[in-house]
């Protein structure tokens, strides 16, 4: 394992050591302030997504590596809680509200946030495999972005929405990780968001029907 990859992982683990694998008391207060408490749904969703993640990780990397997938998921959950809390603090400051019931009961928001957290973890570990196996490890490249979107059945356009706020909310992310997220962002913007079935087309249609003065470009354009 190269020193740069080790640094990347150690830094991530170090940053997350104080973050538990359960919602902190601050995050719990945000949950309790909601009109509808999202706690049970959050936990249930994590359980379901962990099963999907572990199963697909095992298929991609090999059944003997399932435990590695579990470790990555566990780190991803810590990162997810950490960023969620920071995002809510920033939104509380910006909007002067404490009830985020609608956002915290939005399944797409949670799934996108967790996917982004896992992408951060996977990117940190990705370096290990590349350096360890001389860049030829096909199994590891199988779990590279946009693999996570497929595992979570998540639209790229929804994943895109969380990236900037995610980077803003976690100033401890390394330069390499931020660069990786930027690469994901560019891939979505240039290609993935324009694939058939993307929610972007429905949004463009609604914009157009909403009487927008400007002429909306056709999807082909």
């Amino acid at each position: 394992i190269s020193s740069s990859a080790m640094t990347s992982i150690q830094q991530l683990k170090g940053d997350l050591i104080s973050t538990g694998d359960k919602p902190s008391s601050n995050l719990d207060t945000y949950f309790k302030n909601c009109t509808v408490d999202p706690t049970q749904d959050v936990l249930k969703r994590l359980e379901t997504l962990e099963k999907a993640f572990s199963q697909r990780f095992g298929q991609a990397v090999g059944p003997r590596c399932v435990v590695l997938g579990e470790q990555r998921f566990s780190l991803g959950v810590r990162q997810y809680y950490k960023v969620m809390e920071a995002m809510l603090k920033s939104e509380e400051k910006r909007l002067s509200v404490q009830n985020f019931s609608k956002l915290l009961n939005d399944s797409t928001f949670h799934t996108s946030l967790l996917a982004c957290a896992l992408e951060v973890v996977m990117a940190a570990y990705g370096g290990v495999s590349r350096y360890n196996h001389g860049g030829g490890d096909q199994a590891e490249t199988d779990v590279c972005f946009p693999w996570i979107l497929d595992v979570f059945n998540l639209a790229a356009f929804d994943f895109y929405k969380v990236i900037e706020s995610f980077i803003k909310a976690d100033p401890t992310l390394s330069k390499d990780i931020v660069k990786h997220l930027e690469t994901c962002e560019n891939l979505i913007m240039e290609r993935i968001a324009w694939r058939t079935g993307s929610p972007l087309f429905e949004l463009l249609r609604q914009e157009h029907e909403g009487g927008a003065a400007e002429q909306v470009e056709t999807p082909a354009s």
């Binding site: 939104e91 956002l103 900037e164 992310l173 330069k175 660069k179 997220l181 930027e182």
Partner: peptide, 21 residues
């Protein structure tokens, strides 16, 4: 410390992006 370009305006937070404001 990184070169990421933040493009969102001050009135755009994660709540607006998920239509929850």
């Amino acid at each position: 410390s990184h070169d990421y370009h933040f493009g969102l305006e001050d009135h755009e937070g994660i709540s607006e992006l998920f239509d929850c404001d």
